[in-house]
Simulated assay, not measured.
Amino acid sequence: MAADDGERTSVRTYVPRYQKERWQSHAADLDMSQSEFVRTMVQAGRKGFDPEPEELASAEETDPPSPDANPGGNGLEDRVVETLSDGAHYDWEELLAALTDDIEQRLDETLQELQSDGRVRYSGRHGGYVLDE
């Protein structure tokens, strides 16, 4: 990985409108810009991955510390309260569907990408997906 000169650059992604609105609302609740909120959430999600040593050193040198990804709260708890705040009654299945958003679509897209990259394959014989190492 090349050395980072500290220059900032943009990253573009596309999400459903409702997702952006949720992010904007959550960012506002945390008194963060939307950019800082998304960057913080991505970094929080990456904590379980082992970064390359150069990446780690570069990040320590150039990234200002991010606030806690979920200060003072439980992310799922917040989402349940947000979902129920519309006053409607949800049964278990409806609430589960509301909280898992489009996980089936995201999983399908992710598996397709991993298969295209040759990292995962589907085995009909074994009835499931497996890492293709």
Rank of each mutant, 00 (worst) to 15 (best):
R119A: 10
R46A: 13
Y18K: 08
R119K: 11
Q24V: 14
G75A: 15
A69K: 09
E113F: 05
R8H: 05
D91V: 09
D29H: 14
G124L: 03
Y129C: 01
M1F: 06
M32R: 15
L30T: 01
E133N: 04
G48I: 07
Q24A: 14
A2T: 06
G45C: 08
T100V: 11
D4E: 12
A44N: 11
V81Q: 13
D78T: 10
V11N: 08
L95P: 02
V81G: 01
R12S: 13
G127W: 09
G127F: 08
F37D: 00
F49K: 06
Y18M: 11
A98H: 00
R125T: 13
V42W: 02
S85C: 02
T100Y: 04
R125C: 01
D63E: 13
D101I: 00
L99F: 05
W92Q: 14
G75W: 14
V80T: 03
Y18W: 12
D117A: 14
D117Q: 12
D31L: 06
Y14W: 04
R106G: 00
V42G: 01
A2Q: 13
S10P: 00
S116Y: 10
S116A: 11
G124W: 06
P53W: 05
D63W: 12
E36T: 08
P51T: 11
Q105R: 00
M41K: 13
G75D: 13
P64D: 15
L95K: 02
G118Q: 07
D108H: 04
E77C: 03
H26N: 04
P51A: 11
E55R: 10
K20S: 05
L107E: 03
V120H: 01
E93G: 08
R8V: 09
R22T: 03
M1L: 14
T62A: 06
S123Q: 03
G128H: 05
G128Q: 05
L111S: 02
D108S: 12
S10W: 09
V38S: 01
L56V: 05
Y14G: 10
P67D: 08
E133M: 05
V120E: 02
V120R: 08
P53Q: 07
N70K: 08
D132P: 00
L96F: 11
Y122Q: 02
G6H: 04
D29M: 09
E61G: 02
G128M: 06
E82L: 15
P64W: 03
